[in-house]
Amino acid sequence: MIEIENLTKMYGNHVGVKDLNLAVRKGEIMGFLGPNGAGKTTTIRSCLALLAKTAGEITIFGLDSHRDAVAIREKTGYLPGEFGLISSVKVSSYLKYLLSLRGYERTEKMMSLAKRLELDLNRKTNELSKGNKLKVGIIQSLMGDPDLIIMDEPTSGLDPLMKQEFYRILREEKKGGKTVFMSSHILADVERVCDRVAIIRKGQVKVMEEIQALQEKTGKVLEVEFGDPFTIDEFKLEGVSEIQQDNGRIVLTIHENLDGVIDAVSKHRILNMNLKTYNLEQLFLKYYAQGDSERGDA
């Protein structure tokens, strides 16, 4: 659906992204993860031809991102990471206006999205809270029923309940055959809804993998707090790749042999226990840390 080859974007002497490669498949929800300043927004805005490329190719729907920008936009919805609205108009007239620019006359989807996200369409655009403004942005990106939905940090600013509803909406879009490409720097958000994830750092995609494969590869984290003494050696078991200990707590990274580990743990008095199903968080942090060491080598 989206193929990015060796994309480079320079802002003067400043590197936005450098030789970035990325592919989004039709029908999937792709997460785009990276720290601040990694190049997520740059990549996304290049796809929409809002930025001129310095080098490289971007193909969307098999069309050239810049030459055929208008044809692509006919089938693409976009939520910018930062955006403003026309001031002092009713939200409903604003949204209808944007629909009309798409030549799309049906408003049912707009209405149902507003209902699901609990947005009052009769408010004025300049009276909205930050979260409600974001909802307007989300609705406008989806209401024209586009085949491709590109979102730059859609979840930062939504409350937990709204987030859940938002994920449900995305899953439904996916079921309807739509493709979603969304950026975030909150791993948990991406994990909950995405099929695949691309991790970007310093303008380059470092990892691009199925969430599940990544989860299997990285394992699970078991955190236990004991009420009696224990030794680290007790937990040096098959399938445990990492052990950390501080005071009465122990943190294990487990790939397999979960029941063996649980056996070992249950020999002690357990005060508290927490099993995080995956460990992307750590992986994510690992990539950043790696960045620091790379910087040191250079």
Binding site: L50, R73, P80, G84
Partner: peptide
Amino acid sequence: HMDVLLSTP
């Protein structure tokens, strides 16, 4: 607002 407008066709 330009990002929004120029994401329409």
